[in-house]
Design a protein around this nucleic acid. Structure first.
Lengths: 184, 184, 184, 184
DNA sequence: TATGAATGAGTTTTCATTCAT
DNA sequence: GATGAATGAAAACTCATTCAT
């Protein structure tokens, strides 16, 4: 039941009840306990299902080096924040919950690692192409990029007036390659 | 009852119960409802209290233009993550909850605005001093810095192995001033 | 759960607790909140259920013009006060509560209106038959009769020694038809 | 604190809290427990105080035979319902509570007996004056009058559209003296 | 296999009363 | 004497889970 994912995003992990999920899905209440071992299992499955459906595996495989890096980040934010706020909220809920539930943590970690690997590879490729500032290791820049993405998401969620495009332009300028610093 | 803040960080906002808070604080159960109008008020007050105690007002006033900007960010992360992991988790919980509770959102927004104003002023001063990349508006760079700070916090929380110092070095390099890009 | 009605009569509306109701009914505590949206709904449903069960609808339909009016009132009081003191107390509690709860008030008003319509029709029929004093409008006499009924109920409840039969005899005498008052 | 009487009338006996009383009276909270043995004592004292203040003893003594009986009832209803609904509501609350609290019952009974004696004496005097229907014992008519008074009060409280003046006119007509019934 | 009624543990909240100051 | 902070008993309500059908 991927409709449970909606409710996690809307209400928060802890406020989702089995009844609400059943109602939203138009299913009988007993079905929840019948198909899943418990609420937690339902929510975890729903979360991973929603992520898997949103980012198909082959998209991950195809991306590095193809898209401009900034455009990638930008599109990601735009997707999350404008087109489907569900996913960004769900991501935060799941991150929070993952800190406490080992089962979820494991699955989230795998997903995040995959995403991080993609970022590193992309940064490295762009650096080799000369399209991105090469004065720092790709790993470190990728870490920054991931942090900027989620941080902007978080701040934009709290302050809808935040000028995300301007911030992304600044990021673009910062990431631009540059000549070696003149001595002195 | 600043001991409630601990529990928010440990258990998550929604899993804190009045009973648990009372036990942790060594107080009778009725005391919670006696001193606060309800659980939510208690948690909000505890949150703001913890933040206020962690970042004294005069520190805010003294910082701009005095400290190196990167050092500021770095110190902030180090403080939060090493000295008192409570604060970073609490921040995350509070941000998540602020999305749903208008009262908390208002207070968090005020705090973040104050922090953002400080960042902007600092960035602008450093740009004028020639110590920070001037190719983007101070507002946009400050937005990025705030996002990077909280994003790194979040990711470091989820992945304790994350190389934060390396990322901060990369940030330092990216923020360094640079000569105008050669034409072409 | 019509057993809740007993407790309203015995303890008073405000002193009935869900726990008491559950115990009296031999049901687990959670059942109350499961079957009704809340305590108030339970008590309201129990009240209307008890009234509906006590005065079947067809009795209402059959009465007007058939029974002697006094006998009607008398039977009503006797029924309520002797056969089932529960109902008179319940009626009083419900009236008191109806002043504050709009939902209950609406349902009580509907019931009282139905009863009052019956009284008016009966009075009017008896007046036309020449069996009841015709010197006042049927509506006004019906209002008095309704008031006398509930007033006697109330006073008999508070003072068990009250001579209700004597009062009903007096009512019978007062309601008797009379010749036009001699002029002067 | 006679201001507690207001709250009984407004909220109902069981819903009055010591805090509310103290606030309404502008007094410190501790004063309630200091001056009275408990909440119940406070409410009982407040009730009797309000009644005593509303109907001074000498008024009771002066009334019988002086006022027209209907005017007395009418004035009573008007007073209660229009000028000061507080007293009528308080009366009902106190009656209800008196069923359960012996201490209150005793004091209410004394008051009601005094009132009933007054009614009987008045009816008897009016009957002797030839101003009231003499075909029934004064006691029984007094019982009816008392019941009509409280019954009308109760119904008028529930149904503000009730035509009380018309009902009182009918009562006046019913109580009018009449010649012996013509034979046949 | 599927359902949804029923259960009871757990949570928040209210409030009369107590008692140190 | 007077205050109001503190206590804890009791109440309503929620909800995941169980289980008879």
């Amino acid at each position: 039941m991927a409709a449970a994912a909606e409710l996690i995003a809307e209400l928060g992990w802890g406020r989702v009840t089995t009844r609400t999920v059943a109602e939203r899905a138009g299913l009988p209440h007993g079905a929840v306990s019948y198909h899943f071992r418990g609420k937690q299992e339902l929510l975890i499955e729903a979360t991973m299902f929603a992520f898997a459906r949103a980012v198909p595996a082959d998209e991950f495989a195809a991306l590095p080096g193809v898209e401009d890096l900034i455009a990638l980040i930008s599109a990601e934010i735009a997707d999350r924040d404008r087109i489907d706020p569900l996913l960004s909220r769900l991501m935060f809920e799941a991150m929070r919950e993952a800190e406490r539930d080992p089962a979820l943590r494991e699955r989230m970690a795998a997903m995040l690692t995959q995403y991080r690997e993609l970022l590193i590879a992309t940064v490295r490729a762009e650096q080799e192409r000369g399209a991105v500032f090469a004065g720092a290791p790709a790993e470190a820049i990728a870490t920054l990029l991931g942090a900027v993405g989620d941080g902007l998401l978080l701040h934009a969620m709290l302050d809808p007036g935040l000028d995300v495009p301007a911030a992304l332009n600044a990021l673009r300028a910062l990431l631009a390659p540059r000549p070696p610093r003149p001595a002195g």
